[in-house]
């Protein structure tokens, strides 16, 4: 018994260290979560959050009305799926390529440059995209196509799944490939030496050494993205297409739909309902995925 007491006392300094952070997370993240009750209330400004009347599930209804409901869910999930798969693949490939670069200076230069897109804000990216795609004076139509067969980008939905995917990858691959690259560098070089002696080619080394070593990072990052699979980057889907209506079939996601639907009414309850549903579904997915990981490969589970 005294032993146990002693054990706890030993950890008190550690708990004390976590205290400020815990307090901050409680204040900044957990207390406002109480606002999730707004999803089930008809919010009245003068009554405030607590006294506003309950509203059942009717705040959720607007998400499922009309022909666009399934489109926006399809788009949200579809784009996220593509982003996760392509984003991870591209990031790993770039990381492996970077690792093959021998010169330190060259390597550093490459690393710096591929991070530039990550630093540019989405609004600005939307102006860049416009500079390229503008029908009358865009770089592509005006300079590359010289005005002949000019393509009306902002009225042709068929191009946009590719444009949006390209922009998303362009903006994010630098950041994630640097993370993978760091992990690759951390791999014990003796593995490669041994493989080399065994006569394994570069490709074989990648498959049998690099990829297995990257597995924990891939799993963690993927689990984190699965949790947000019902969310979308508002800027990417609203600002990059300049809010163009003709493109809505392929650019509408849950977030842009909610924004458009509530812009006039500014309905706090409905906005909370949408956010709640997105978080809840994401949570269920990530919890399930984590459970699976836990069964197969306990070491790499998130929690």
């Amino acid at each position: 018994m005294p032993h146990k007491k002693n054990k706890w006392r030993r950890y008190i300094p550690l708990y004390m260290m976590m205290l400020p952070g815990t307090i901050y997370l409680i204040i900044n993240n957990y207390i406002p979560m109480g606002g999730l009750v707004l999803a089930f209330k008809k919010f009245n400004y003068s009554l405030g959050m607590i006294k506003s009347p309950w509203n059942g599930l009717s705040n959720f209804k607007f998400l499922f009305i009309g022909a666009d409901a399934w489109k926006m869910i399809r788009n949200t999930l579809g784009y996220n799926f593509v982003f996760i798969v392509l984003g991870t693949t591209l990031a790993i490939i770039v990381a492996i390529l970077l690792n093959e670069v021998a010169g330190r200076k060259a390597r550093k230069l490459y690393q710096t440059i591929i991070l530039v897109p990550y630093l540019i804000s989405t609004v600005i990216v939307s102006y860049i995209v416009y500079a390229f795609l503008s029908q009358d004076n865009g770089f592509i139509n005006h300079t590359l196509l010289r005005g002949e067969n000019a393509i009306s980008w902002y009225t042709s939905p068929k191009y946009w799944p590719f444009i949006l995917t390209f922009v998303q990858l362009w903006k994010s691959f630098g950041y994630s490939s640097i993370i993978y690259f760091a992990t690759i560098i951390g791999i014990d070089p003796t593995y490669y030496e041994a493989a080399s002696i065994d006569g394994a080619g570069k490709l074989k080394q990648v498959v049998s050494i690099t990829l297995p070593c990257l597995k924990p990072t891939i799993i963690t990052l993927t689990l984190l993205s699965i949790g947000r699979v019902f969310y979308s980057d508002f800027g990417l889907f609203y600002q990059i297409p300049m809010g163009a209506g003709t493109l809505l079939d392929v650019t509408q996601t849950i977030d842009t739909y909610v924004y458009r639907a509530l812009l006039v009414s500014n309905d706090v309850g409905r906005a909370a309902a949408a956010g709640f549903l997105q978080s809840l579904l994401g949570f269920i997915l990530v919890y399930g995925a984590n459970l699976m990981v836990n069964k197969i490969d306990k070491e790499n589970a998130l929690f």
């Binding site: 997370l25 900044n28 993240n29 109480g34 606002g35 999730l36 707004l38 949790g227 706090v268 909370a272």
Partner: peptide, 12 residues
């Protein structure tokens, strides 16, 4: 958990 759920702007 804080990465998944948030209470939204108004309560904050």
């Amino acid at each position: 958990f804080t990465m998944l759920f948030n209470g939204g702007l108004v309560p904050s």
